[in-house]
Design a protein around this nucleic acid. Structure first.
Lengths: 341, 341
DNA sequence: TTGTAAGCGTTATCAA
DNA sequence: TTGATAACGCTTACAA
């Protein structure tokens, strides 16, 4: 139980080499003779050596830690993104210190300080809480995902194209009126591009459209009530017209679909629906619905690729900092299912 | 950019104290005079000191790291559990190194080794992949959640009671035949208790019942096909009887419910459904369905409470190891919604 | 109440 | 190809 750990010193004593040579065995084995490599390898087994990275960190300054700050794990989009980020361990070897902010800026800031105390080498931020300006001030590589990103590098879905795809699909479904429900997003938030893409297509094609930019609330219950109210309005305003509705995400698209099923027992001919994200719910809903798919594995992979290159650059003797933040854009994928023609 | 970091030595030089005194300022401030505390506090601000925990870890051996090994983040149950585990940071201060195994025992084992190299103080395991015997061999505090737990401490839902609650609810709904669909779980897996609870209630009350113990597959598509096939069987075997079906989890209950809605446009009078977990999907389904709720925040909290006590014990000069692993059991909550009477 | 000095387990820098 | 020695930033006896 209280067996003190085997260290380089023990191995050195056992093999009659110096600690330096043992260190070299791990970091630059080719600088030892094959014979000596074997001797040390045998000693490791004989002594049951377990590496201790803390000493290494202290001496080298490299933690191989990356901090992740995520708003919550309740929404499928975030948990799947985290899943894919964690999976890059196999490729890059970085370990992730994860924190879910749950909309508490104070807690996020506190956790950031703590992460810095552990000498994390980089940071991935999905949470919108802390401004990119503040994040840039920490002076470590930062990559944002689908959040305000003026002063930091980022990877985002091509939201404008997503809006274009959604409007085009509803146009093909020969809807009489196109609607887009969303929060009234500031231009700096990448997701606001969806609204612009949607509107541009409607205008270019002289399609009748309406934007319903309103807060749908933060709880499932709120969402249901607001969407139900909107549905009542639509029924009144466009009673017999075929309504093509582009929802802000799959969670809300699902709610709309359920409300329609409860009222009509099916998706009426006068409604067509497109969601956003391609979350599992889009496939698992009462009928699978059409959606604009975010390529989450690609986004996560690109984010780590970008972050990793920033971190590598920083380790060089004469690092060249970026002049401008890099913003990568990932193409969304149109997914046609049973709620469009 | 390349400003080297401020250390205790710098503060000591600045304040004309020793490094020890600076250390004490952080770890036992009351042993300094108020005046000197103030002097040091001022110096910290003046020099813009940022703490470095790596040195502390090396010197004290305490990392405040806890490893978390989770099967995936795809299933709501796991992502919500992780969410709640991460939230305990506010209470206990432990940082979490998270790894999603995604059913790869090799990767899980590799990651475990790496975690050990960082001197994690404890481990929370949700993944079933590695046996509790092997986990116990790592000689650090381990808490399992809803997995085989013969040789390790654990926190589990009272699965037996869950089975009892489900069967009782279906009985109250005056079903003619009670069915439970589940995988053919070994007795060592806590979830197998649901089957026993369900059967015991059926027998005690002389209710007609059937167990359908079969693998439902690992993908959504597989799940749908298998459940659809089972539904066909039931329609044939019990055509006009009222069927009360206890599903193994909410994901599968949702699939069943959707299949019924697609066939009948509503939940027919001949079907009653109970899920398990109280995942968001149980509320967000086409109609909210009844389920046996796992108290995820309680489970996560108890797991960290237990783990934290084990870790504290271990830091004592003469730690007393447990004779037997502790197994905590958390009561499930019956949640009645629209798929039972 | 404060200080001295010896670690903690590696890596880095020279020198041989 | 190998070794001696000094870091890295903090904690912890033990002394004063």
């Amino acid at each position: 139980m209280k067996t003190k750990k085997v260290t380089f010193a023990d191995i050195a004593a056992y093999t009659h080499f110096s600690k330096t040579t043992i260190s070299r065995y791990f970091n630059d084995p080719d600088s030892l003779t094959l014979e000596n490599q074997q001797k040390i390898a045998d000693a490791l087994v004989a002594l049951d050596y377990k590496e201790n990275k803390v000493g290494r960190i202290l001496a080298s300054g490299r933690t191989e830690f990356v901090g992740v700050i995520i708003p919550n794990l309740y929404m499928h989009y975030y948990s799947e993104m985290l899943n894919q980020i964690l999976a890059t361990y196999e490729t890059y070897g970085y370990k992730f210190l994860v924190f879910a902010g749950n909309e508490n800026p104070g807690a996020e800031r506190r956790y950031l300080e703590e992460l810095m105390a552990y000498n994390i080498e980089g940071l991935i931020v999905l949470s919108p809480t802390i401004s990119s300006q503040e994040l840039a001030g920490y002076n470590i590589p930062v990559v944002g995902i689908e959040r305000e990103d003026q002063y930091i590098c980022s990877v985002n879905t091509d939201n404008y194209l997503g809006g274009v795809q959604a409007a085009s699909l509803l146009k093909k479904s020969r809807c009489d009126i196109l609607l887009h429900i969303n929060a009234d997003l500031p231009d700096l938030v990448p997701a606001s591009g969806r609204i612009r893409g949607f509107v541009d297509i409607c205008r270019e094609n002289s399609l009748a459209y309406e934007l319903i930019l309103t807060d749908l609330g933060n709880t499932f219950k709120d969402n249901c009530e607001r969407i139900s109210a909107i549905l009542d309005q639509l029924e009144q305003k466009y009673p017999h017209q075929k309504k093509g509705i582009f929802m802000p995400n799959d969670t809300h698209a699902n709610i709309l679909l359920n409300l329609l099923f409860r009222r009509f027992g099916k998706l009426p001919e006068t409604y067509r629906i497109v969601g956003f994200d391609n979350s599992p719910i889009s496939e698992e809903a009462v009928i699978p619905f059409s959606t604009i798919g975010q390529q989450i594995p690609v986004i996560a992979g690109e984010a780590m690729k970008l972050l990793s290159s920033l971190m590598e650059e920083r380790k060089k003797r004469r690092p060249v900092p970026l002049k401008e933040p890099v913003h990568k854009v990932i193409t969304p994928i149109l997914i046609r299912r049973d709620t469009t023609d």
